[in-house]
Nucleic acid binder design. Structure first.
Lengths: 226, 226
DNA sequence: ATATTATTGTGAATTTAGTCACGACTTCCA
DNA sequence: TGGAAGTCGTGACTAAATTCACAATAATAT
């Protein structure tokens, strides 16, 4: 029996990049794209800070993990930075994704055209509703959930937008098919083998947390608010 | 001119509770509810850990900010803990919320019955589509967006599920009406006065981040996976 | 009764993230 | 050409969050 231990990132090239930084990269990328499309040639960490609402020192620090990308006294060249991030974020190879559960939330995803600015493509969707099966939404074909094994065809990433009570059963089938990552919008916390990455986005929790913060963590009030 | 400076939480009762802990409270609350409904009388931090996928030491630390809620060698009494969190999370007073933008994502929220387990209620929704205006979804009335000022009636929390290009305009109107908190599902980063709390949930960024992590941060593979 | 096992609560250590503040270098203007 | 203004990159610091690890205690079994 072979025991392999890889603590996160220890073996990888990009391993010095903090997770908090990695999570902000897609955001930077999107805004750089906007700037580029607006024809902007240069941008400072201060400007970018105002746009993405991240402290400018944090932005400079984040960028610095990738080397010296800017010029002192000048800022960053938008096109260069964009090109750099395109490579870093692997924007050149497309990642194929399957969506499970074509309810309202799932449909929202299907209408969201990820390919516009990036390399992620929802390739197929699954649902149990015979009304939906066989149709396309946003050019994505909808198959019956029973065909999951047959159609999935090596897709490594899934978005789960199904009712909570179906979560475990569907998850097990995805695991069986060799899934690598799951974006879980279900209120259930799923159990998967260690090598599979799951990100939970829990809409009810987000809303409750916002309300809790509003009541218990007053924000600063300063001059700018009069 | 009066200048008031309140750094987050410094003035409040609950102020020792770390933000990371506060964000987990709604999650704990939901699972305790589940356990209680299943008739479970006691639970250990280890069991809870497996259910919510949070390290058991973190759970014990989180609970400890509220005092000694458990018993050594025994664990926590589910009913007691639940009652305690009900008070802490203000589950007794209802928070009214408005939803702006009844597209697929907005509709998903309207069907989600927050009242089932907690104290948050979507009171009204707004949209520009005349087909939708005047109807109800999940018992929530939909008004025309032009009636925002007229109908909002002191609601302090809004969920933004509108297209990106309308974001700034709608945000300004909400600010004008005295909103306190916004849950923003728009890819735009909105600008508001300091005293207003905004939480961003950016679906495209979440998906891109997952893909980035999959490629660059391999997870541990251990015995349990064979 | 007593031993064994389970489990908390927390001090201390560690890890991760964020911010300050400034030297170095660039650009731009007069 | 020289000086002022702008901006990066980063060492040092601070803050926040997590994890370790164990004494204290409760429950349970014999």
């Amino acid at each position: 029996m072979i025991i392999v231990w890889m603590k996160e990132g220890i073996t990888m090239d990009q391993n010095k990049i903090p997770q908090a930084t990695a999570k902000r990269l897609p955001l930077y990328y999107r805004f750089l794209n906007n700037l580029n499309q607006q024809g902007k040639k240069r941008v400072s960490s201060k400007e970018l800070s105002e746009a993405v609402k991240v402290d400018s020192a944090t932005i400079r620090r984040d960028f610095s993990y990738f080397g010296a990308l800017g010029k002192k006294g000048y800022g960053y060249n938008v096109e260069y930075l964009l090109g750099f991030f395109r490579k870093t974020l692997d924007q050149d190879e497309t990642t194929e994704v399957a969506l499970i559960g074509v309810g309202n939330l799932g449909t929202a995803f299907l209408h969201y055209n990820f390919m516009k600015n990036n390399n992620i493509q929802i390739q197929m969707a699954f649902d149990a509703d015979p009304e939906k099966v066989g149709t396309d939404i946003g050019d994505v074909p909808i198959y019956h959930i029973d065909e999951l094994e047959e159609k999935l065809n090596g897709i490594k990433v899934a978005i789960l937008t199904i009712p909570a009570h179906e979560t475990d059963q569907v998850t097990d089938r995805l695991v069986e098919q060799g899934i690598d990552g799951i974006l879980n919008f279900t209120p259930a916390r799923i159990t998967v083998p260690n090598h599979i990455r799951v990100h939970h986005i829990d809409l009810a929790v987000e809303l409750q947390a916002l309300v809790y913060f509003l009541k218990h963590y007053p924000l600063q009030v300063d001059q700018a608010d009069k």
